[in-house]
Structure formats: structure tokens, C-alpha cells
Design a binder for these strands. Structure first.
Lengths: 216, 216
DNA sequence: TTTTGTGAAAGGCTTCACAGCC
DNA sequence: GGCTGTGAAGCCTTTCACAAAA
């Protein structure tokens, strides 16, 4: 598959695909393109998602439920190591094949299972407290869905997924159509994408596209 | 409140706060700083979130439930105009004060209520179909949570929130600690933030911070 | 011929640093 | 003295365009 095909399938510029992949190594063949399966393996290795890193979810409300049951973990190279809540009505429930535990066990389990990422889906007021416990359990990264700022000591990474902010971005572009970066009008239509980090998705969707010639 | 305080409260550089705000106008006073309430109003006006834009959610599974019940809409300047699903067991249920309707009514309601943004929380296989119906109902922007690429005709904006991609970014930085952009070590700790578009949040959190001098 | 990998150019974003204002 | 608004510098990302490889 050529860089142009990968680009079309994922919505980016072909030069960007080649440049991004070149940061990892020389995986393509001039005149032929890339071997998609090989590429997938290499990218997963580079991303560190080839070894099923353990993840916990804290806060098993509707959002926690949704994430726990999603297939997002397995396809992304993670495995669910634990679910936690502090509501006695939720603790003990089975979700996605795991029993929900009480948050009092959080730090200990994280340390024991060497949990890599903690996903915070609690209400805002509990987010920082949960993050602190994750950190004390040795978790190296936090994905925060709570609408609250979470701060951590230096080596611990935090990413914040902010639903309201996404809506506001859309509102902004609707209020200022002149600020919209025009999409190229060649088919297939493109979506915006951020950077190197989406490489696996690019490949995944390209692969899916090649498997189904006509739409979904 | 000074740009330095706003910056600390939201995790960005003070010069960036000033530069970003300067794109909208001259709202600060040298020697004094910014009037937070005035600033909030101006930013909301610029973002176009001062007029309660109508939003629909399609796909009332756990994620749709979570979003429908969140306070994210009101605080961000939106209002829920409709909830849709195609499962007869879900249609008719009340969620967040609204009755879930059947997707067959989607396009019509969007047109009638002049819906601004459609939030897609369906399974992947349904996302493109739902997006098409949103577009035919005249919706101008789509926020897609389904793990599927959604394409739209040119003026319709799409934003994709990708849970797996967020996890993979964290995995990448854990696998490559040398690639982590070092945070400044001065207190208070900072989080990463993207750009101008987070201005309302910066202000919101700064305001909240000023209201509670000591933590949460 | 087709397509890669990559220097170089272009473009954009962030930060610095300071004149000017309060 | 403190702080804003902003030109200029620095840095990073994206795109172009082409020599080299198959």
C-alpha cells in the first residue's frame, strides 16, 4: 500500500505519512509502498502497545461502564486490570468481565499489578483525590475524563479529555466560518488529524478500507 | 487577575494568555490585569457559546447516557434538544429530562429545531449513517465518539474523540520517556493544553481557583 | 514507471522581552 | 512598581519537490 493510499484512508497528506514513518525507520519499498501488516507491527512496537499494558478505570458510572465494555483497550494494546468505585451499590457488580472493587483497594492493586495507566471517570470533585491514589500506587500516566484539572508529580503524565471543550471548538467554528481550515475537495473526504501519534489508526483504518472496497 | 495568574490556573505560559486574548480585543488594563467576569462574557461571545445552541445526542448507550446527564452542555453554552436511539427498549425512556426518540425522527427534529451540533455515540457501524441523517437535517457540526471515520460534505465540521488514541499517546510516552516534554517544576503544577480554544476553560478554572484558595 | 526517504521551504505556534500605560 | 499588548525570535510541524531505489 502506498503512502498516498494510507494518506487518503486516514485523512492526511502523503508526505506526512512518509515523514512520520521515517522517524521510526525505513519500512517502505520504493515503487511498491508499505507492507501493511509489517507496518502495524512496527508501529505498535514503537508505541509500546504490543505488550498489553494493564489499565484501571476509577469511577464506574455511565462513562466508566461505557469504557469498560468498549473494545478500545484490546485493539489499542491494553488490558483491563481493575474497576473501582466508592458506591456500595456499584462495588461487587460485574462489568466487562471484572468485579468492581472499592477504591480503598486502588493503590495496592495498582502497585501489585504494575498498572500502567489509570483512567479517571469520577465526578470532578473526586478526580484529584483519585489521581493522588493512582500516583501512590505507582501508576505512570492518567487519562482524566472528569471536568477538573488534575495535577501530578513530575514524571506522571496526565491527559485530559474534555467534552465541553470539544463542543466549544465546534461552536467557535460555526460562529466564525472564515476561520475553518478548508478541506481539500478531492474524494475521498478527509478528516483532521493531529500528528504522528495517530499512526496506528491511520494504518488500521487503511487496512479496514482495503478490506471493504465499498463503504461500511 | 493578571495574565500570570490565569496562566498558572490553567497551565499555560502567561505570554500565551495575553497573545490569545489580544486576538479578540484589548480587554486588560496594564498594572491591573483582567476583569474575570467581563473576560468570560467576551470569550463566550467570541466562541459563540452565549446563545445556548441546540444539541442532539444519537445513541443512548452508556456513553450517551453519561453525556446526556452531564452538566457539560449548560456550562458550555449548549442545550439538549433531543436524544435518539433505535433500540425499542431505549426509545421512550427518560434521560436527563428528555424522552429518548426513535432515530427515524432525527433529521426532522434537527431541521425543525435548527440543531447546531450532533453528538454521535453509536456503535462504529452506525456512525456514518447517523452522520448522514444529521447532515440531511441541516446540522452544521458533528462530534463523533464512535470509533469510526465519519465523512461529511464540505461545510459540515466533524471532530473525532478517540479514546484508544489517547491511551496510545500515553503508552508512547511511557515507552519513550525521553520524548516527554518536560514540565516546568515551579508550583503550581501545569497540565498540557492545546490552544486559544481553551480560553473559556482557562478562565473558568482560574475563577474557580480564586474562589477556593486552598485546593479542592 | 512508480514510489520512497528526505533536504529545504513554508507556515504556524509559542515564547521572549520590552515600550508604553496604569 | 506592576502589568499589558505586541514585534521579533525561536521552535516545531507540515508540505513541497526531487534524487535514488525497485
Amino acid at each position: 500500500m502506498s503512502s498516498a493510499e494510507l494518506a487518503d484512508a486516514s485523512g492526511v497528506n502523503a508526505a506526512k505519512v512518509r515523514k512520520d514513518l521515517s522517524h521510526f525507520g525505513t519500512y517502505g519499498t520504493p515503487g511498491t509502498g508499505y507492507d501493511v501488516d509489517f507496518l502495524l507491527g512496527q508501529i505498535r512496537r514503537e508505541l509500546g502497545t504490543d505488550q498489553d499494558r494493564p489499565v484501571v478505570i476509577v469511577g464506574i458510572g455511565h462513562l466508566g461502564h461505557a469504557l469498560a465494555r468498549s473494545q478500545g483497550f484490546v485493539s489499542a494494546g491494553f488490558k483491563l486490570a481493575g474497576l473501582f468505585d466508592n458506591d456500595p451499590r456499584t462495588v461487587g457488580e460485574e462489568v466487562g468481565g471484572l468485579i468492581v472493587r472499592h477504591v480503598s483497594e486502588l493503590a495496592e492493586l495498582c502497585a501489585r499489578e504494575r498498572v500502567s495507566v489509570g483512567v479517571v471517570t469520577t465526578p470532578a470533585f473526586a478526580a484529584q483525590d483519585v489521581a493522588d491514589q493512582l500516583v501512590s500506587g505507582g501508576v505512570g500516566a492518567i487519562l482524566n475524563f472528569a471536568p477538573a484539572l488534575v495535577v501530578t508529580p513530575d514524571p506522571v503524565l496526565v491527559r485530559h479529555v474534555d467534552f465541553s471543550a470539544e463542543l466549544q471548538v465546534l461552536a467557535f467554528y460555526q460562529a466564525h466560518p472564515e476561520a475553518v481550515r478548508t478541506r481539500e475537495t478531492v474524494p475521498p473526504q478527509r478528516r483532521e488529524i493531529d500528528s504522528v501519534e495517530h499512526a496506528v489508526e491511520e494504518i488500521d483504518s487503511a487496512k479496514a478500507a482495503s478490506a471493504r472496497p465499498l463503504g461500511l
